[in-house]
Amino acid sequence: MAELSTADGDMASEGGGTAATGDTVDAGDAAADADATVDAGDTVIATRALTKRFRGGQLAVDGLDLTVPAGSVFGFLGPNGSGKTTTIRMLMGLIEPTSGSARVLGHPMPRATRTVLPHVGALIEGPALYGFLSGRDNLLRYDSADPTADPRTRRTRVATALDRVGLTAAAGKKAKAYSLGMKQRLGLAAALLQPRRLLVLDEPTNGLDPQGMREIRSLVRELASDGTTVFLSSHLLDEIEQVCTHAAVMAQGRLIIQGPVADLAAGARGRLVVTTPDPGDAARVLKEQGVGDVVVAEDRVTAEPPDRDLAEVNAALVTAGVRVRGFGVERASLEDAFVALTGEGFDVAG
């Protein structure tokens, strides 16, 4: 929890922080709840040297050791083509690994699909619907495919799932008339037909407007607070930063880093930034004040933020006659950290 509150502080200091603070507290609750409620050990997904080489010889996933703790909201990040979806497909038993092993909810996959998958809701590579069926009939069909789903409660559960994603009004419309955002919502509803222990959401906010994205985020938090582990793949770092407690980064089929989001963010500390027409003097004063790693770039002087009160540093600058236009800490985003790790941008639209 201590790590999480650090993250809070960081986010709040960013300025647009009211929402962020609320988010992180929610996610923290989720982690605490889950510790108490989840029974199958404390890892929900565990892979060992998981590898997939496709028939063409292309190595899609290379020796992946992934550990997803129970009750976490786990962000799975990586540029397009980094092997995220192939990993998810192996976890869901759709693809046989070339070597290595994967355990989901304590059972080996793909051998235990019938035991494991009823407890897992999944949205994989966007929604897929029967265009000639209504939204409601699509859900009825997916539900009837699950042999553990009780047919007596089917209609109630479908109605609840539709309501949860805000599609009740459009439930009778043919799915081919749905917009991309509505299809995405219906896909989510299919994942929510039963109470799940694990939700795997591959790019869940694709095609949604900002309002829809917010709704999905609050839905994820709500589910997490009920003790559901959420495994969320995304190329949008904001999304991960706002809802996830843990994250992993993939690039070119390999896992680069995984751990609590707070730790990952801590790896990329913010920078003290002074904007001034007198950069030379400013750099000298900062060094005198014991500030490390001072870098001058035109009218901007950046440095590692000192532990002491920043107000004193500012006062020292002004006392020394340095004209200061701007003074503050710029928080390094996860994006900076991850771009540094993967050497690629994330905002390539998928």
């Binding site: 869901m92 998958l117 009823p118 897992v120 590579e125 897929a128 029967y130 539900d143 042999p147």
Partner: peptide, 14 residues
């Protein structure tokens, strides 16, 4: 072709 196969199998239809 419609992509619905993966959702049927994840349901899990078997």
């Amino acid at each position: 072709n419609a992509g619905t196969l993966r959702y049927l199998l994840v349901a899990p239809a078997g």
